[in-house]
Nucleic acid binder design. Structure first.
Lengths: 196, 196
DNA sequence: CAAATTACAAACCAACCGGTATGTAACAAA
DNA sequence: TTTGTTACATACCGGTTGGTTTGTAATTTG
């Protein structure tokens, strides 16, 4: 990995903990044995670092949850339940509850303060929405999803459910709460399943 | 209003925008024509201010959404739909989308960093959860809610849905997205309605 | 090989931040 | 009346922050 990428990833780790405003980039890269000079050699300023982290790390990490749906042929409800939601459960570790998902954390923190962040984060959510909506549109076509379902609304429901699970989990720091929220989202999707 | 309360409310307004870490308390109270000296006369330090804002302003504001359910006799799904969710729509103004709900913002920002914040915020969510769960438990008793419903899970679903709506709304800054999310939560609750 | 560029380290800097110390006018209590 | 006490304003302080400047070894280029 290039030094540039190492710096970005290292700062990203701290950003997950402290958020963007609480982040101290030069303090972060001390862990790499690098100095502030190295950082400002690769990056113009703190906000450029923030933006690049969103584009290069936050976005692919979040979208990876949904991208396989693009080539998934079966019932999209199955995909969400058995890949997205169970993937979130499977990825679960001690930091999941305390730190949450970076994309949602950054929205909460930075969307009102910085349009550069907000637009980049908006694009992430809209891309995920489009992937999801397309999956459910195809589900309607191949008969696995009820015809009256609105694919865009379902996409919102899924992302909202994931976001909510992390928020409640973060406050309670209770694995049960987190898992329950995800399961409720999964159950809710059953409504849109076409039973022949 | 006392000077103390004026200071707290004034700082709260800025905290809605900048979060806690981005908050500059002495800068905030300049708007009141008061000085840093006044602030440290009434409060020990910044974190005390943060904690008091959560206890005295954030908590009552959020719980006000749910407290009437305690004495609500009808179908709790109706209460959520026609009071909680429509109240959130009714309260909607230009700041709703940009700023979100303080209780959720603070969870995202401060829960991982400060146990003083986290426990106070957790209490708020748990109090709301208990009010909601009690409402749905009573709904089961009086037959408006299906017997197989789990009141605690429904309480999670509602709070998660509200939280998610604000998160997605904040990123997209789109009123439709926000309203759609709230409506999906409302629709989802129909599952638990008992149809005789 | 010489010249230029890259990849950093180190020192420095102005602004800012949370917090303290000090002063003082107004008011209440004894 | 005197003595505290309350309610602030002002000035100050040490540490931190984001960022710049300068220097220099290593690498690349011509």
């Amino acid at each position: 990995m290039t030094t540039r990428d190492k710096i970005l990833r290292c700062i990203y780790e701290d950003m997950k903990i402290y958020g963007y405003q609480g982040l101290r980039p030069d303090k972060s890269i001390l862990k790499l044995g690098l100095s502030k000079g190295a950082m400002y050699h690769y990056f113009r300023d703190k906000s450029e670092i923030g933006y690049l982290i969103v584009e290069e790390l936050v976005q692919p990490e979040y979208l990876a949850l949904f991208i396989p749906l693009l080539s998934y042929e079966g019932d999209p409800v199955n995909y969400i339940q058995h890949h997205v939601l169970s993937e979130l459960k499977h990825q679960f570790d001690e930091n999941t509850l305390t730190l949450g998902l970076p994309v949602f954390n950054l929205i909460q923190e930075m969307a009102p303060l910085d349009e550069g962040f907000r637009t980049r984060l908006q694009i992430i959510l809209e891309t995920a929405r489009d992937i999801l909506a397309d999956g459910f549109r195809r589900g309607k076509e191949n008969g696995t999803i009820v015809p009256e379902a609105d694919p865009v609304q379902i996409a919102l429901l899924i992302q909202s459910g994931i976001s909510g699970a992390f928020t409640l989990g973060k406050a309670t720091r209770d694995k049960n709460t987190f898992f329950s929220c995800l399961e409720m989202t999964g159950k809710t999707l059953e409504i849109f399943r076409n039973r022949p």
